[in-house]
């Protein structure tokens, strides 16, 4: 019970890798979109807001199917990426990371937008009056003050990525070592008669990862917000 089987280790490491990579690549975009939605007014803003939130409300299978159409080897974007950069998302772990990132994206945008809206813009004005240009004011005032929100977004995105199932299996299928993540392995086991014990082990493993991520983020977020409020 205490040692994991090679199959379990493979699924676990794959899930962690996909979770981390998808967060690293989608976080900057999510921050940019959060900034746009919180700070800018432009025509079509509600449309962008709606599109960003689509993965939250669409059936994950629909998201996976859309990704397949767009990013498959013959898809509009997929073909372009393959021809120009030799990059393909079809049926490999990068595709799984893309699917996870897309599904986690709205959660990350929401968390960061909220924390950005709570940053006192008067502090930015003070920074500007002290000679800081927009970029310096963003890097030294805004981003540090919203760092608890960025952390929350990262953890939330990671947890959502690790748990991603529908979009992933639709987009990149179930390939051992490439796209067979924890939830997919778990699903496969539920389909095999007499594998209750193995199913339980994976289910418990998933719960542990999720709990560790959430508790860890709670602790760090607390310290971080005490730091930025200067009460520590």
């Amino acid at each position: 019970m205490l040692t994991l089987t090679p199959l379990e280790i493979e699924a676990l490491l794959l899930s962690l890798r996909i979770g981390i990579v998808s967060v690293i690549f989608s976080l900057p975009f999510a921050l940019a979109v959060a900034w746009l939605l919180a700070r800018r007014d432009f025509p079509g803003k509600s449309l962008i807001d709606g599109i960003v939130h689509l993965p939250l409300v669409l059936p994950p299978v629909a998201v996976g199917f859309t990704l397949l159409v767009l990013f498959g080897r013959n898809g509009v974007i997929g073909a372009f990426l393959y021809d120009w950069f030799g990059l393909t998302f079809a049926f490999n772990w990068k595709g799984a990371a893309l699917a996870s990132g897309v599904v986690a994206f709205p959660l990350m945008v929401r968390a960061m937008r909220l924390s950005l809206e709570l940053v006192d813009r008067k502090l930015e004005a003070a920074a500007r009056s002290l000679g800081a240009n927009r970029l310096r004011s963003a890097l030294t005032i805004t981003i540090p003050l919203m760092s608890p929100g960025i952390l929350t977004a990262a953890i939330l995105g990671f947890a959502r990525s690790v748990g991603e199932f529908g979009a992933t299996i639709t987009f990149v299928s179930n390939i051992p070592g490439q796209t067979r993540t924890l939830p997919i392995a778990l699903y496969v086991l539920t389909q095999v008669p007499g594998s209750d014990a193995a199913t339980w082990r994976l289910a418990i493993l998933s719960v542990l990862i999720a709990l560790a991520a959430l508790i860890g983020s709670e602790l760090i977020a607390k310290r971080l917000s005490a730091r930025v409020r200067g009460t520590e």
Partner: peptide, 15 residues
């Protein structure tokens, strides 16, 4: 603009 501004509420950077 090189103007110093002392705001009513101070506006010190908390971090």
């Amino acid at each position: 603009r090189r103007l110093g501004y002392v705001f009513q509420e101070g506006r010190l950077f908390p971090h």
